[in-house]
Simulated scan of single mutants.
Amino acid sequence: MTPLRRRLLILLTAGLLLAGLATGVVLHAAARADRANQAQPGGPAVSTGKLTLDQKGRLTFLNAAAGPHRTAVASVPSTDTGGGRTASDVKCARFYAAAGTGVCLQSNPGVLKQSNRALLLDADLRTRRTFPLAGTPSRARVSPSGRFVAWTVFVSGESYASAFFSTRTSILDTRTMKLTPSLEKFSVVLDGKPYHASDINFWGVTFASDDDTFYATLNTANRTYLVRGSLSRRTVTTLLQNVECPSLSPDGTRVAFKKRVLSRTDLWREYVLDLGTLKETALAERHSVDDQATWLDNRTVAYALPADGKVGSSDLWTVRADGTGTPRRLIAGASSPAPL
């Protein structure tokens, strides 16, 4: 055998070995993914069934339990949240619904880049319109009437705990399909004076029942503010500092929010603010809550906390809104609650 043929044979053999190794890695990864998607023994019972957003007395959420229905929009009876859950075929990274209107934020990894989009859903979870997102899904809300939908994405950074992050918050009128791409186009009044800055970020919209007023977080100069906004006037006005991810109570009198309790740590506690007096009440939950809470009724709020020992999963917890009582786990393996 000539030296040239010997070198060619060595190169061919090495190529076959590398190809075999790559195939093995892919098959091993696929096997791990299959195991991860199998329902875990002792986990919640999840079945496919008819799920609509106009069913009264049910609580919708994203199923975070391991199995083929992971990240699917699911629901349980409000009076039996620990029972079997019904899952749809719609999967989301963030979800919310009200008055028969739903919004589903999806994040689909691709070969070259991640594809993010918002789906406007009707009561039967059918897609009415699709909107491309400028970044990674973060927050989603629907107004009580179902007319307006809001979503927030991370344009840079991946969490509110990041040293540097930028968000973009959009609002959609579902009647006219007019999209406000960014709240940063709204006029800002800070401490009673017009305010302009290049570092303004908004996130965590929550709507009042008048289809005009909304509340949100404004971030600028390393400070966060609760703002009250008007859709018709395209303005926002600051109300209070150190308020993030507000959620308006059904009666419109209070806002649940997360408050940074140590300035140099990523530690938040859940509070409720009386909008009439601006009095804050610390809730009984002592864990750090990095979520936009949801009011189940005028007395209780729900929020997601990381599930013990389950990477990437979360449980829904609930606590009284007056600062009394003890937190209790509402639904294991769940996030993004929305009472119907």
Rank of each mutant, 00 (worst) to 15 (best):
T167C: 06
R94K: 12
D80G: 00
M177K: 00
A304G: 09
L125N: 11
G135Y: 11
F131S: 00
D34E: 14
V189E: 13
D191Q: 15
Q106L: 08
A208W: 00
D274E: 07
D274P: 01
L340S: 14
S230D: 00
R260T: 10
H196A: 15
R6M: 04
S88M: 08
A284H: 03
A282K: 09
P327Q: 05
D34W: 13
T206M: 04
A19F: 00
A65Q: 14
S47R: 15
K91N: 13
Q40V: 15
T206E: 04
G43L: 07
T2V: 03
V153W: 06
D191K: 15
Q241C: 00
T2N: 14
A221V: 07
T169L: 11
N37K: 08
G323L: 02
G43W: 11
L9C: 04
G57E: 08
S247Y: 00
F214C: 03
P181R: 02
V155E: 12
T167P: 11
A293L: 10
V205W: 03
I10Q: 09
A163H: 12
L62Q: 09
R7W: 10
N116Y: 10
S335G: 10
A33G: 01
H287R: 13
Y303G: 02
A64E: 12
R299I: 00
K50Q: 12
L172C: 00
V255Y: 01
Q114S: 10
P44L: 06
R233M: 03
A332E: 13
N219Y: 07
S336R: 03
T48W: 04
R269L: 12
Q292E: 09
A31M: 09
L330H: 05
L273R: 09
V189G: 01
S88Q: 10
L16R: 02
V153C: 09
Y215C: 03
A302P: 04
Q114A: 09
A256D: 04
L121M: 08
C245T: 10
T217S: 14
P337V: 01
L17F: 02
F257T: 03
A216W: 05
A163S: 15
R328N: 02
V73W: 09
L172S: 01
R58M: 11
G42S: 05
L21K: 00
D80Q: 09
A118H: 03
T48P: 08
V149P: 01
L21N: 05
H196V: 14
A134F: 03
H196Y: 11
P144D: 11
K178Q: 13
W268Q: 07
R5A: 13
L59H: 01
L59V: 02
K91R: 15
S230P: 02
F61Q: 04
A36D: 14
F186D: 07
